[in-house]
Amino acid sequence: MAALPIDGRDGALRRLSDRLVARPRLLVALFLAPPLLWLGVVYLGSLVALLAQSFFSIDEFSGLIVREWTLKTYGELFRPANLDIIGRTVTMAALVTLVGAVIAFPIAYYAARYARGRTKALFYLAVMLPLWSSYLVRVYAWKLILAREGILAWATERTGTTPLLDAWLALPVVGGPSLSISYTGTFLVFLYLWLPFMILPIQAALERVPGSLLEASADLGARPGQTLRKVILPLALPGVVAGSIFTFALTLGDYITPQIVGSSTLYIGQAVYTLQGTAGNIPLAAAFSVVPIAIMVGYLAVAKRMGAFDAL
């Protein structure tokens, strides 16, 4: 067998391997080139194209795009109607994030602290399956639930809580002719859609809290409520922030949910969609889509400072 100090066997592949092994940097560069080219050209290229368009404007008489650099289009964002859209979307995203965190926490806490073995696997799948199952179908499910003759109406009737529902619908802002045509409906669907994105990072953050820490806290005389407030919640916070990145980004960009369940008021996503489609105002659509980007970049910067990336 190989008694030589140097193995001299040859072949085209082996010689190519010789070259690559001798230059590890070249190898990394070769690995990186295709994905970077793809993402750089296709994705970043498109983003730049989008950004460029936001500095164009539209001729008010002909409706044609004027390819001259201007900040006019961004100025249009500050019209009251457009500010309304932005404010409404951000408020909705914030509410969905807050309530989502509150509902997600017990599930994540139970899964991280108490579930073991099979239960743990079941919990995990119970969160993963909705996360990955069809987005549209899940929106559709709420159309079934909130419909006038649907399960919610049936359930309130059976339990005699219909007056309660009616009273809610009679409220200003959150109410409306029916749940499926109200802010409440839109909110419920968003909450439902993005809840799994909140549960998983919180669970991941909680899993990293060693059990001995809780015992130490109890040992030092903390009541369970105190341990929760002083130890668990601060340590779960990066997970909440990580989850909120998703709930925020997803709500900011969604144009389908409010279209199917909700009052006829617009959200950023819808505004972008209609502006680029029927209105043909690509510059304003582009400027509008810079809003969620800007919000997310700011959000990510804050989240990074809070250590949320480790919980992703």
Binding site: S46, L50, I282
Partner: peptide, 17 residues
């Protein structure tokens, strides 16, 4: 980035490109 930014941004960016 493509999943961190809202899908509509990716969509309209590709479309305008």
């Amino acid at each position: 980035l493509p999943i961190a930014l809202p899908g509509i941004v990716t969509g309209i960016a590709l479309r305008s490109a």
